[in-house]
Each structure stands twice: as C-alpha cells, then as structure tokens.
Write a protein that binds this DNA or RNA. Structure first.
Length: 912
RNA sequence: GCGGAUAUGGUGUAAUUGGUAGCCACGUCAGACUUAGGAUCUGAUGCCGAGAGGCGUGGGGGUUCGAGUCCCUUUAUCCGCACCA
C-alpha cells in the first residue's frame, strides 16, 4: 500500500473533528498544562508558510505533554479588530465585519489542513461583543481604581475620595500624572467637574490633555510602541507630536513590579533586556536650583549628583512650562523664534539631526548650590520635555551632549573627575577620583555619588528619586473598527456605564472615513451619546489568554474555578515583535486583575519562546537585454542581462519549469532559453517574503504536494526554532522520503500490513531507546530540528525491521510531529483509541549501556582518545595510561569507578 | 553611541557542554533497476594533494595534555534602544 497522505490526512482531520478528540475540560484529577500561540490578525493575504512555524512547534509540544499525562489547554482565536480591515473598508466600502469574517474563514481552512490539536470550542474573536464585553469591563475597573504606592497595588477610587475628604492630599502617595496639593477643605469646595478633573489625575484609566503621537495620514493617535523612527509601524506614515485630549492607561504605576517580575520568568535574556530598556529605570536625585531674582526653584533630575561642582549652566526643554517666565525682556524675541523653529521640526528631523547643536539663552541665571556661582539657563531641544522634569543641570566636562553645547556657546568646562582630557572630549565614564569638588575631592566616583545623595537631602536641596522611561499608554484611537469605550459624557465629565449595560456594541455604519470636522467615524452615528474614539489593537489581546479558560461564561471574564485550575500560560510561543507592545500591556492588565483578585497569578506567561522569522527565498531569471531570451545562471556573464524575479512556485531546486514559465505571464509566452546541461538554472537571494518578490510560499500548496505531516516535520527540520531563516522548499524531499520510508516499514512487498511479534534484538532495542531518549530531551529543549534528525538516524539504523515491539513505540514517539500518519498506522495495528491517548514511551537505561568506555589516554606521550576499556577496568589500570595532569589526577582521586554508565561509547554518569 | 545575538563544507545544519569537527538532510558525482523518471535502492562527497600527508569552525592572540566550545582582542551581519540627563 502506498503512502496516500491526502487520503490519510483528510480522514483523520475529519475524525478528530467528529469525535471531539481535542476537546478539553477542567479536570482537577490531572495536572494542567497551558500552551498558547499568539493569536493571528486575520489579514486578507492569508497565511504564508512562515506563519505556522510557531503553531507547529507549540502543537508538537501540546501533543507531547498530552501523551505525558497532562490535561493540555491549547486554544486558538483571532485578533480581529484592527487597522488593515478598516483601511480596506475606506477604499472599498466593504464593512470590516464582512471582510474580517471572510478572512477568518480562510485562515481556519488553512489552519485545519495542517492538523493542529486546537480545541476550537474555545475559539475567541476580539470583535465579538460577547468577548469585548470583558475588554470594556476591565476598562471600567481601571477607571474605578487608582494605584496606591504604599500598598503597592490598585485600590478603589472611593478610598482615595475618602482620604481627600479627611486630609486632602497630605497623606497621599499614589501614582498620578502631576503632583497635586490641596486640603480637605479645598477638596470640599471643588465643583463636581473639578473633583472629577482631580480624580482623572489618579485613575488607572484616565483622560488627559497630553502630547501624543498623531499620524495625519492614518487620522489617529498611536502608542509609543506603534511608532518607530518617527514613522507609524503600520503603513510607515510620518508621525507628529500634538497636544490632544486622550484616554490613557497608567501603566507607569506598575513599572517597578513589571521590572521585578521579569526575574522569575522563563523568557529569553534578550527579550527581558528589551523590556528592561523599555521600562528604563534609572536611580538618581531630584535637585532644586535657586533662580537668581526669583522665589522659584528649578527642579532637575540627575543620575550624577557627584558632578554638581562641575555644573556650569542649566538647560530646559522648549516645552518647559517656565520658558516664558525665565526669559528676560531682551531675550524674548530670540527665545520665541527658537521655539517656533523647533515646533516646525518633525520628530523625524529631530531624530535625524541629533548631532546638530542648537539652543538659546533665556537671560536668567540659576545658582549652583555648591559653588555659589551664577550659571546661565538655556533653552534647547536636546532636553526632552517628557523625561524627568524637562530640565537638566549641565556638566559639560562629563556629559558629551553638554560638552558639545558648551563648546558651541563658549561656556565654561570644569573637570570634576580625573581621568579624561577635556580639551578633546568629555569624560563620561563613571570611574576615577573627584577633583575641584570641595568635600568630595579624592573620593571615588561611586562613593561620591552616595555622599552627594546624603548631602543633597541633608541640605534640603532635593532627594533621591527613581525615574522611568516608560510612558503611560495612549488608549484611544480615532477609528471605527475597535471596541467602543463604555463612557458617556455629561458636559465634559466622563461617566462610566454600569456593568449591566455591557457590552456597548459597535454600531453599524457605512462610511468609515473621519467626519469633515476631523472627528472619528463614530461621530457620524446618529444618537451616539458615547465616546467616539475606540480602543487600540492591544486592548483585545491583553487578556485573551484568560478568556480561553472559560470562553462561554457570560457572568465573568473567567470563573474562579477555571482560573484556579488553568492559572496562567505555561508556554507562550510567538514573535519577538510584541516585546514592547502586547507583552507589556498583557502583563500590566494581568497584574491589575490580580490586584483586584480576579486572577490568581500575577504574571500571565511563565515561559515564552520566540520563534524566528521565516524569510523568503527569491528566484531570478536573467533576460538578455532587449530580447525575450533568458540565459541560465552559469552562462549569464557572457551576456548583458537583466535580473527578473520569477515565481518560486514554478522553480524546483533552482531549476526553472520552462513550460510553466511560458504560461506564467503573457509576455513570456514565446520566451527562448539558453540552457546549461539542458536545464535552466535560476539565481536566488534571501529577501522578505512578499507578493512583490514572487517568493511567497503558501502552506496549502505544500500540503497539496507533500502532505501536512511533511510540512510539519520540514518546518521543524529547517533549523533551530528561535533562529530567523529563509524558507527553502529545496530539501523537503528528504523529509517526505523519510515519512514514506516510515510508512513502508509496516508493509511487506505485496503491500499487506505486516508488523510481526518477533522479539527485537538488543541492537534494535538500543536504537529505539536511544531515539526515545534523544527525542524526549529535544522536545523538552525545543530543539525540534535535532529530533527530526534523530528519527531519520533511527530508521537508517533499523533497516527493514518490521517488529511491533519497535515500530509501535516509534509511532507514538513520532505522533506529535506527524500525527496523521501516526494515527493511521496506530489504527492499522488494531488500536481503538487515538494515538494521542497513548502514553509517551519511556526509555530503558539498560539498552543505552555499553560494556566499554573511552577515556583520554596518552599514547607515546601524545593524547589520544581511542583506547577502550572494559567496564570492569579499575582506576589503577586506567591511570597507568593517563598523563599525570592535575585534572586527570583529580578525576581519579577516590573516584575509582564502580560502575560507569556509557551511552554509545560516551561517559554519561559515574556511579561511585 | 549603548545593549543583545550570531559567525562551522556548495546549502540548511549537528557536535553528548572542554574530548576523534562536519551527525541528519539538500545538492553534486558514480552505479543498480527501469521504455522512461521529478520513482526507488547502493556507494562517494570539508579543502589542498596523484599519494604519503597537510590544512580546516570569520581574523589575531591566550589558557589547556586537548578549544567550534573558556578568556582577551578584532571584523562582519542581524536585532533592540537611542539627545533618557
């Protein structure tokens, strides 16, 4: 019987569906394991061969865990709200709900062909009102809570109000936008609108007038992680800074906890590092500088208080609120001009021109609290309004930016740390001895920093302070295709809907552009008395992993029972591109729900694996310039040629299918070829997988040609999971050949199923157990490429072994990788259960043991590694051959091995 | 500029974590069976050399009896952050 993968695969996919094979329920009698993939955004282009990489890996792991006795939750869904569907709607008038529905159907069809073990009964879609009800619910909870720095958690806003009524802000230590100061009496005197204004300063979901990333082309604001190099991540359109009233999430309140939480997560060091950088904690001091002729004190933040003696000027950001106040009459014109000029510069220009020094003096002076010197205050855009206090103390001798500025404006440069040559450049290193610094002279930098902290606090100049680079997340988008905010307005006061009013459904509209007045599309809806912006893409994806635990519950996001059983995600597989977006927001969202007691784990994703990107491998043909003749790769040097992308699907092993090429496009219908060895060889290059490069490989095509099991194994065989690599269909034959060989193992020459019950030999058992051990270890380490290789080696070693005692465990072993073929063989053997109900095979150590082992020995004074000893060899016998090095002696000392366990000639353990 | 990662045959990769570098595949070459093969099977295949032999894990140096693996240095590529005080 031939290996008819089409027949086998459709048969088993149908059965799995009919029998609900992969349906999961909570089962307290069994240990749980939660394997999650980052759910896809269903785009119009469908899946290419790169998308399933992570899904296949997680599917193998899920099936493996299931065979190990775990109750495995492995769900899938769709991140269905988002910009592309809406952009498409604007162009075509097609409602996003319709295109999204179509795209989901297409995705599902593609996914089903690959044979995943998802529990589709738990599917979620973020655009489903029954789902986004809980996104809105979480938002309302955030609106109703603030973050108390003393209890280090979210608390009901009523607690804060009660505090205001009693003591005003006197005893408050809460996360806020700006520090407020008022008494109980002042609070009582405020109007309702004023009180709400104050509370917005503390709520975890709040509305504020802030500088935002505005993308005119997309007509919406964007969060920091949606902007890169001054361009929008989606679409690549310019982004400008603009002051607007927006909803925000106070993620900064959780900065420290999100930072601390990283330590215990099984994430890659590089991903943790990206998040640490994004949070950007820095420890420093807040210091107030007196301003000459004013009662005001200029507040700055510094991480180098040791260098205060070297401060020779101050700089404030152009957006600093005191710019007007600090500017003297004679400097007014120059300052105004400068600010006008910086406003015109886009974010992109500002980034591009970081080397250019610019600035202007305010005419005011501050006083260096340690030297007593009067120092000028400048305005310059190298100081950012958004970080620290938007003002700095400049130490040109020890900060390269201050140095460049001082050089440009001819300002004094005083070295206070010995070690550099300030004639040439600033000395930024945090090491050396202090000079020109009064009581700090002779001290080491580290020591000086500590002493200065104390001194600053003692003199009442300021205090220690921790600053974060992390910004609050802008949460509203001026778009249609997203979750509506459960907020209505009473004048300017935002009123939350009652929970019983949820979900607030997105109304149907037919025109998706912003209004003439530039308002979001929802402003077109007649009678819409709610907020007109919608929530951003990350809203729906922030808690979807919780919803999978209990997807049909209409009383709660997740029931206590389900949450306490499934707890959190044990293994999360997805791309690194979500490092500062989704993975930050999800952690914030989860910690918030944890504070409120709705979930029992503070961290949502315990272990995370980032699969690499699959790049495209493009093929080229070479047209002789001015003709319709195409010359093969090896001969192209002899002609003047033009390189043309050719569809990779009509090229095999870099050999062009000439007829297919002629049929590909009308202009090539009468193409002629200059061949080498009778074939046309194409050139190739690694590029991004995209339609325009004609290098997109569709998984459907691979499944059609080779079957899902081959696709699954080949994707794994391609290389280490976490590494980016190009897709190259060359080579898939090797994996397909292997599966055919595995299939034929069970049939005799006449094609009858022919497993026998003969007892396996020692050698065959050794091969089997070696493979079991290797494959199990590799799966645990996510080293799927080497486990596929192990299967191949196994078959090579076994030859034509048709013994049930060998083939049956191998079938179970291979099932996570190639489930269809495994199921078929399993059923032919007479098993009535599904192969996924079988226990994963254990290996028996005794089959791994050999009777001899090798040890490095000296032969004729030269080190060799050839000599074999019997297992019973004594230390004395071995030592006679060993060069008398310390290491060898140490190994022998008291180590006289009683038993040495050896795997195919290598020592794995010495039992004493 | 700062931080992280990677570098091994013609190609994708492997190496029991300091112990015979190149497993397993692709490709290539030779052979078998075939009317035929994009089927199947067998063998060869790191480089130089006729051979003995020599060289070989981006480059240079070091530790070690022994280095792809550890240390120092350097180069290239990729990724993240970037006027963050």
């Amino acid at each position: 019987m031939e290996y008819d993968f089409k027949e086998i695969e459709s048969k088993w996919q149908r059965r799995w569906k009919e029998n609900g094979t992969y349906h999961v329920e909570t089962d307290p009698s069994r240990p749980k394991y939660y394997v999650l993939d980052m759910f896809p955004y269903p785009s119009g282009a469908g899946l290419h061969v790169g998308h399933p990489l992570g899904y296949i890996a997680s599917d193998i792991y899920s099936r493996y865990k299931r065979c190990c006795g775990f109750n495995v939750l492995h769900p899938m869904g769709y991140d269905a709200f988002g910009l592309p569907a809406e952009q498409y709607a604007i162009q075509t008038g097609q409602h996003p709900a319709v295109t999204t529905e179509q795209n989901i159907a297409r995705y599902r069809e593609q996914l089903d062909k690959i044979g995943f073990c998802f529990d589709w009964d738990r599917e979620v879609r973020t655009c489903d009102p029954a789902y986004y009800k809980w996104t809105q619910w979480a938002f309302l909870k955030m609106f109703a809570h603030y973050y108390d720095n003393r209890t280090q958690q979210a608390e009901p806003i009523e607690k804060l109000v009660a505090e205001f009524e009693k003591n005003g802000t006197a005893d408050i230590d809460a996360a806020c936008t700006t520090k407020l100061d008022f008494t109980a009496a002042e609070w009582a005197a405020k109007s309702e609108a004023e009180k709400e204004q104050v509370l917005q300063n503390y709520r975890l979901a709040f509305r504020a007038d802030t500088m935002v990333n505005w993308c005119p082309k997309l007509g919406t604001v964007l969060a920091n992680d949606e902007v890169k190099d001054g361009l929008s991540v989606r679409g690549g359109y310019p982004v400008v800074q603009k002051r607007m009233k927006q909803w925000l999430l106070r993620v900064t309140a959780y900065a420290q906890r999100m930072l601390d939480g990283l330590d215990d997560l099984e994430w890659s060091e590089s991903l943790k590092e990206i998040q640490r950088n994004w949070i950007g904690r820095s420890v420093g001091a807040q210091v107030f500088f007196d301003i000459d002729g004013s009662d005001r004190k200029l507040e700055i933040f510094t991480t180098r208080p040791d260098t205060i003696f070297g401060v020779t000027f101050m700089v404030i950001a152009p957006e600093h609120e005191w710019v007007g106040e600090l500017t003297t009459a004679e400097n007014e014109k120059a300052v105004e001009e400068y600010i006008e000029q910086t406003k015109k510069r886009s974010e992109r220009e500002r980034i591009a021109e970081t080397k250019r020094v610019s600035g202007v003096a305010t005419g005011s002076y501050a006083v260096n609290p340690f030297t007593g010197k009067h120092i000028p205050i400048y305005v310059s855009d190298y100081v950012l309004a958004g970080y620290g206090t938007g003002a700095i103390m400049a130490v040109p001798a020890h900060d390269s930016r201050d140095y460049a500025f001082a050089r440009h404006f001819g300002l004094e440069i005083i070295p206070v740390v010995a070690g550099g040559d300030i004639e040439k450049e600033s000395y930024d290193a945090k090491e050396g001895k202090m000079i020109n610094s009064g009581f700090l002279d002779g001290k080491d930098v580290k020591e000086a920093i500590a002493l200065m902290f104390d001194e600053v606090e003692k003199r009442g100049l300021g205090k220690r302070l921790v600053n974060y680079r992390l910004r609050d997340a802008i949460f509203s988008r001026q778009r249609y295709w997203g979750e509506p905010f459960p907020i209505r307005y009473d004048g300017d006061i935002a009123r939350p809907l009652d929970e019983s009013e949820l979900p607030l459904e997105l109304p149907a509209i037919s025109e998706f552009k912003p209004t003439e007045q530039g308002e979001p599309p929802l402003a077109r809806v007649e009678g819409w008395q709610y907020e007109t912006s919608t929530m951003p893409g990350f809203a729906g994806s922030s808690a979807y992993y919780l919803r999978y635990m209990d997807p049909h519950n209409d009383k709660a996001l997740v029931s206590k029972e389900a949450d306490e059983y499934w707890r959190n995600v044990d293994l999360y597989v997805g791309g690194i591109e979500h490092a500062t977006g989704h993975l930050m927001y999800s952690r914030f969202w989860n910690m918030f729900l944890y504070d409120l007691g709705y979930v029992c784990e503070a961290e949502p994703f315990r272990k995370l694996v980032n699969q690499g990107m699959i790049q495209g491998r493009s093929n080229f043909v070479y047209r002789v310039v001015g003709t319709n003749k195409f010359v093969s790769l090896g001969l192209r040097k002899e002609y003047e040629t033009q390189e043309i992308h050719v569809d990779v699907n009509i090229v095999k092993n870099d050999i062009l299918d000439l007829d297919a090429f002629r049929a590909w496009r009308p202009e090539f219908a009468d193409a002629e070829f200059i061949l080498e060895d009778g074939r046309y060889v194409c050139g190739w290059a690694i590029e991004k997988m995209s339609k325009s490069m004609y290098n997109v490989v569709n998984p459907d095509y691979i499944v059609e040609q080779y079957g899902a099991d081959t696709l699954r194994m080949y994707e794994m065989f391609l290389g280490p999971l976490e590494q980016s690599k190009p897709w190259d269909t060359n080579g898939i034959d090797g994996v397909h050949k292997f599966l055919r060989k595995f299939w034929r193992l069970c049939f005799d020459r006449e094609g009858n199923f022919a497993l026998n019950d003969e007892a396996p030999t020692e050698k065959e058992l050794k091969t089997l157990h070696k493979t079991i051990k290797k494959v199990r270890e590799d799966i645990e380490n996510f080293s799927f490429n080497t486990s596929v290789a192990a299967f191949m080696i196994c078959l090579n070693e076994l030859g034509e072994c048709r013994k049930r005692g060998i083939v049956e465990p191998l079938t179970v072993l291979i099932a996570p990788f190639a489930p269809h073929i495994a199921e078929e063989l399993w059923s032919l053997e007479g098993h009535t259960t599904s192969v996924c109900d079988a226990r994963y095979p254990e290996y028996d150590e005794k089959y791994l043991v050999e009777s001899t082992f090798e040890y490095p020995v000296s032969v004729n004074g030269k080190m060799r590694f050839k000599k074999q000893y019997p297992l019973t060899a004594t230390a004395a016998e071995i030592s006679a051959d060993i060069v008398a090095t310390d290491e060898a002696q140490k190994w022998l000392e008291g180590a006289a091995p009683k038993k040495i366990i050896v795997v195919v000639g290598k020592i794995i353990n010495i039992v004493k």
